[in-house]
């Protein structure tokens, strides 16, 4: 069990931490998961594995403050973003500390040009236009989107490029924490490789990163692997069937 030491009030050591997180849907008897403890250091990639329906996406929503700030649900325990409980923050306050990229590129991109997409967040935070211009250039460079894609419609880009745009639009808010919710599931081999390398680079820059996965092939970027199983978040152990990469073996039990 991981305990957040009381000394870490500022969240400097662990930008993202969960304490005794329990969640149940309204009208459901059994909690989806309970007693989840997690601490993520700066520069670290923690991967959470689990089968479909195990509650991974809901856990993502709790870790990113979407629950309870945007979506309702019975959540007990706390999520600390840079040392502050998400219950005491507003959504924009969370968004400037923590960025989340979702699985489906089409429901997280809304503008007809890449640059507009990236500028949306900083505009909401009232960043002066000249500074936004620099931010757009910087994050496009970070994610490796070539300058000539700037005026293109994200809707017409490849799946991998769309996810890069989604990531760039989140990075423009300069979050210290990044959460990736199965972002590679719709990408081909090349797209996956690019995103994996990028996630490692971002951790190298000191971001605290959580990736959520069902595909064992995407585990190589993780410093630590946790498994969400039967409502508990446990350490991955050698020989755990989810991570074998051998689909047949999982089915046999």
């Amino acid at each position: 069990m991981e305990q957040v030491p009381d000394g870490d009030k500022t969240g400097l050591d662990y930008p993202l931490a969960a304490r005794g997180l329990t969640f149940s849907f309204p009208d459901a008897g059994e909690p989806l998961f309970s007693g989840v403890d997690l601490r993520v250091r700066s520069g670290e990639v923690v991967t959470i594995m689990g089968l479909s329906g195990s509650g991974k996406t809901t856990l993502c929503h709790c870790l990113s403050g979407i629950i309870p700030l945007i979506r309702p649900g019975q959540m007990s325990g706390d999520v600390l973003v840079e040392g502050v409980s998400t219950r005491q923050l507003t959504v924009p306050e969370v968004a400037s500390r923590l960025g989340i990229v979702f699985q489906d590129p089409d429901t997280q991109l809304f503008f007809p040009a890449v640059e507009d997409e990236i500028a949306f967040g900083p505009e909401n935070l009232c960043v002066p236009p000249a500074e936004i211009e620099l931010t757009v250039q910087r994050v496009m460079h970070t994610v490796g989107l070539p300058e000539e894609l700037r005026h293109r419609n994200p809707h017409h880009l490849s799946g991998g490029q769309k996810q890069l745009v989604a990531l760039a639009s989140v990075l423009s808010l300069q979050p210290q924490i990044l959460i990736f919710d199965e972002v590679m599931s719709q990408l081909d081999a090349d797209g996956k490789k690019r995103i994996r390398r990028l996630i490692r680079e971002l951790a190298g820059e000191g971001k605290a990163v959580v990736t959520v996965e069902h595909d064992p092939d995407n585990l190589d970027i993780a410093d630590r692997v946790k498994v969400l199983h039967d409502g508990q978040l446990v350490d991955y152990q050698a020989g755990w069937p989810y991570c074998e990469g051998d689909a047949g073996r999982v089915c046999r039990d």
């Binding site: 979407i66 959504v91 969370v94 968004a95 960025g99 429901t107 967040g121 909401n124 989140v170 808010l173």
Partner: peptide, 10 residues
């Protein structure tokens, strides 16, 4: 959700 998580109406 995606819109809000990018600080809409901050």
């Amino acid at each position: 959700i995606a819109v809000e998580m990018r600080a809409f109406r901050a």
